[in-house]
């Protein structure tokens, strides 16, 4: 079962040479990819439904309002739960006719009930929540089709160590806002670590910046930073901004 530490000499080649091990790495990467793609599939649905609402309206006082966005709720509720701890649409400032800033955002509270996240969205208020600085907003705004933010301490929404995934909502080429979802790191771990464990060597998932998301080794726990290490190799996870790092295997 799991071999620990670095591999060297002829033994070090086993993980690389053994087709079964290469297969375990492939499967682990596929599990990570499918887990994340499942969340993105939900976001693409939210994106399309939001875009349809926006497309039906003209800008100005008769345009889209907060109550129109409430039509998204049955869809959002359908996706909430399991891996997704929070999901919704974040309007670009100025999109709505009746509010300069708005989030149609729902999350599960500690008891598992659905609650709408209400933040102060009055720009004149001292508590004003300016969401346009956050990576999950700037990523899609700047043209990224799929953004993965974090893991980070999400002290404004989940109050936990989380990932936020987001996609842009555009209508006729004009940016209307983002569809986004929060995934708690501990639930993400629960979804992918069983597959990582099948790899007979220390293995962990890192984001594009090198932050560890989930891991099978205490040396590289979620939250730590992987800056490259001799004896470890990165494997791509689909075309996502994530990698699977495995000890003693040649990179893909």
């Amino acid at each position: 079962m799991p071999q620990t530490g670095m591999h060297s000499g002829p033994a070090g080649a086993t993980a690389a040479a053994d087709p079964a091990d290469a297969e375990a790495v492939r499967r682990a990467a596929a599990r990570v990819r499918d887990t994340v793609e499942g969340v993105f599939a939900a976001l693409l649905d939210v994106r399309d439904r939001t875009a349809a609402l926006v497309a039906g309206r003209s800008p100005g006082p008769a345009g889209l309002s907060r109550s129109d966005l409430a039509e998204l709720r049955p869809v959002l509720f359908g996706y909430l739960g399991g891996l997704i701890a929070g999901i919704g649409f974040i309007a670009a400032p100025g999109l709505l006719a009746d509010a300069p800033w708005y989030l149609e955002w729902w999350q599960e509270d500690a008891s598992g009930s659905r609650v709408q996240l209400l933040r102060d969205l009055d720009p004149a208020s001292s508590a004003f929540y300016d969401y346009t600085h956050w990576g999950w907003y700037t990523g899609p705004l700047e043209g990224s089709e799929r953004t993965i933010c974090g893991p980070y301490v999400d002290y404004l929404c989940t109050d936990e160590y989380s990932l936020t995934l987001s996609v842009p909502v555009t209508v006729e080429g004009v940016f209307a806002g983002v569809a986004a979802a929060d995934v708690l790191v501990r639930r993400f771990e629960g979804a992918v670590v069983p597959a990582l464990r099948e790899v007979p060597a220390p293995a962990f998932v890192v984001n594009a910046a090198g932050r560890v998301v989930a891991s099978t080794t205490a040396k590289w726990l979620g939250g730590s930073v992987y800056r490259g290490e001799p004896g470890f190799a990165r494997h791509p996870v689909g075309d996502l901004p994530l990698s699977l790092v495995v000890a003693g295997t040649p990179g893909g």
């Binding site: 933040r119 102060d120 001292s126 508590a127 004003f128 929540y129 300016d130 969401y131 600085h133 956050w134 002290y155 404004l156």
Partner: peptide, 9 residues
């Protein structure tokens, strides 16, 4: 976020 961290507090 703008100042809402202080409100959480």
């Amino acid at each position: 976020m703008a100042a809402s961290g202080s409100h959480l507090a």
